[in-house]
Design a protein around this nucleic acid. Sequence first.
DNA 1: AGGGTTGGATACTCATGGTATCCAATACTA
DNA 2: TAGTATTGGATACCATGAGTATCCAACCCT
Lengths: 228, 228
Amino acid sequence: MRISELVERTGVPLATLKFYLREGLLPAGEATSATRAEYGEAHVRRILVIRALTETVGLSVQKAREVLALIDRPEDDLFTTLGRAIAALPPDVTPVATQEYPRARAVLEKLGQVYDPGFAAVAQLEQALAAAESAGIPLDDARLAVYGPHIRAIAEFDVASIPREAAAAIEYAVLGTAVHEPVLIALRRLAHQDVAARRLRQAGAGPRASKRPPARGGSSGRSRPKRT
Amino acid sequence: MRISELVERTGVPLATLKFYLREGLLPAGEATSATRAEYGEAHVRRILVIRALTETVGLSVQKAREVLALIDRPEDDLFTTLGRAIAALPPDVTPVATQEYPRARAVLEKLGQVYDPGFAAVAQLEQALAAAESAGIPLDDARLAVYGPHIRAIAEFDVASIPREAAAAIEYAVLGTAVHEPVLIALRRLAHQDVAARRLRQAGAGPRASKRPPARGGSSGRSRPKRT
DNA sequence: AGGGTTGGATACTCATGGTATCCAATACTA
DNA sequence: TAGTATTGGATACCATGAGTATCCAACCCT
């Protein structure tokens, strides 16, 4: 198919597709002449993945390219590739070799997991723990004792569901790690609302909050933020 | 203290603090004269929170201002305020009223939770589910059956740990929701690596990654925290 | 009195993530 | 076969966001 069909199929503007082509996110079609190239279903899928990574996972074009490159050329084993992909995921952490990550180390030791400062995710965890502290809500032992096992159970399922075959496995693992994160986050937010709503209702008309809790529908995003 | 001391205490450049002042993220100090203002510990804390929200949670300055405004002026009840705060969190969803979110609806029904299209998190979940589909890894029932209960358990703990007093509760809930997300994400990524590493070792594969440290038994350090 | 800080205003910079134009070489249609 | 429409490729352009940098005049302290 021609590029105009990609535009139709994906809804992404032509200029943007050309931009992706230029930036190396989208492989060029097979040139059939100087002014014609043939694209396939793989291109359609690729475009959707690009949008998923940039719009929902929140990757920059630069980071998305890194992730896609890992999927395209999985020269290393799954474990190494996954580590590299994680390094491309937010939060962007400045990798300072020979650095210690004390908060992350303490957490990992409590969880009985290996602490390797070479893992990008360790630096990411350190930053996240520091941010929680800064916000006045550090990750205390009680919370870790809850988060740890549940998150681990989720991760066990994730890994167990990775297909056997190597190439497919890497793509599945990399994309699955990235793309299910927003799902988990959204589920937690909704669970917060659900649990909070139930408790409020149960407690009978707003004892803790300053005002009456309107049992539901309270958060309709109707307060349009004013633009600056 | 003067503004230069805020610079020292937080490490944030003066020009940036002035920017935060301008943008209304940081409240002005108490002016003691035309060219002097007094800042306090609250300002130091606020700056740290701003950095946590922007750098680690990934909020734009605009969104961070919205979240901070909710904490500063919690005019509504906890439930409503939390809903509004969630609307400011990524991924940015364009709220189209009167829209249906079929994927999110299906998921929430399977979880037995209320489906309210007015919740920003519902639109966020819809987008996340669509992105997962686009990437070729949809959230199937088996996965949901795992994610759902574990995430809910986490959320139950979160809500249970919210303090009683109203004003404190809102700040705690809003910041806690936002700031623990990166922690959960990082823990999942590390759990992936840990689980994958264990399986690889178990499968008799040789040591692939050059810098992987030796394995440690999961039981030795488990829940036997003794940090410095 | 004079140097070093301020607050406040304004202007500037840089990186992103696209958009928009041009162009010449085709390909399709009549 | 002429004329029009589409491409690919290159280049130029633009809007936002998040700071930075400069000025300046009013202080404060010594």
